[in-house]
Design a protein around this nucleic acid. Sequence first.
DNA 1: CTTCATCCATAAGCCTCCGTATTATATAAG
DNA 2: CTTATATAATACGGAGGCTTATGGATGAAG
Lengths: 153, 153
Amino acid sequence: MKDVAILLHEASGLLRRRFEQAARPEGLTLMQWRALGLLDQQGPLRQVAIGEALEASPMTISDLADRLESAGLVTRATDPSDSRAKVLELTETGATKLRTMRRISEAVFAQVFAGVTERETAALRQGLLKLKKNLGGAAPSAPEKDVQDEREN
Amino acid sequence: MKDVAILLHEASGLLRRRFEQAARPEGLTLMQWRALGLLDQQGPLRQVAIGEALEASPMTISDLADRLESAGLVTRATDPSDSRAKVLELTETGATKLRTMRRISEAVFAQVFAGVTERETAALRQGLLKLKKNLGGAAPSAPEKDVQDEREN
DNA sequence: CTTCATCCATAAGCCTCCGTATTATATAAG
DNA sequence: CTTATATAATACGGAGGCTTATGGATGAAG
């Protein structure tokens, strides 16, 4: 249990390192890549929505958006229907970068999962999903939203 | 594959957040706790050895050591047999903090693994271990060290 | 219309984590 | 001894990540 938790922490860090090493020519970090991918498949999104999808705090997304914007990968416009909110949208440059990244990311994941069987991958997915659920992470596509949040601290 | 990799990243971040939230009263981060635990079971270690055990870069350990030292949890002394190296050793304060953390960490892990069966935990462990191996991470206690490192980049 | 709670984004501040470059020491080769 | 190479730690710089605090906007209630 404890060892698995630590293993999780280690594997995640190693994966991140490997990914960003492979993506260095493109100058993208794992989080940046995930954000661009999200915008690509969901269309323009508010920062708060990105934060929920990526399980990150609003501040983290704000910082992230700064860099994506100054790199020209996204535009950041005030939401017409709510002037507090800002909507991020993938630029052509961002979309192109994402296409370039496809080969890189696939190569990394193929290497990381080398020798891992279908069964093992499925078990990993199932286990991680359970942990994520226990940690309060929203399910990938569950509109379920009854957060009861009884603080135990 | 890609989804599992992302799940790994998310679960790890959530776990870290939850752990550090629970450990806030003690002011310990996950990495700090892991470092103290390592020193507790292995005895005094050089920073480079800590880095290998924790799968972190030398710089990360250097920063970490700064904070552990100034918090009085470890001592940092020059290695008599190599004046370049520094040896970290747990202080009494550090050992005490570690004992206090035992309850906290166990509570966190119990919560995170709630409803996860033995089989699932084992599968998770096995899968993560494979990923870690593919990522170049050393096995937990394997003196095997034939790193071939054919760079593919 | 005004008040109040809520919400979105962000500034400030701090720690984590990393790659790169540097310093100092150790070790191997000449 | 001297030079070259490798190694241990770290200064520097930068992204990631969080909490707390703030400012501006929205929306519901009066």
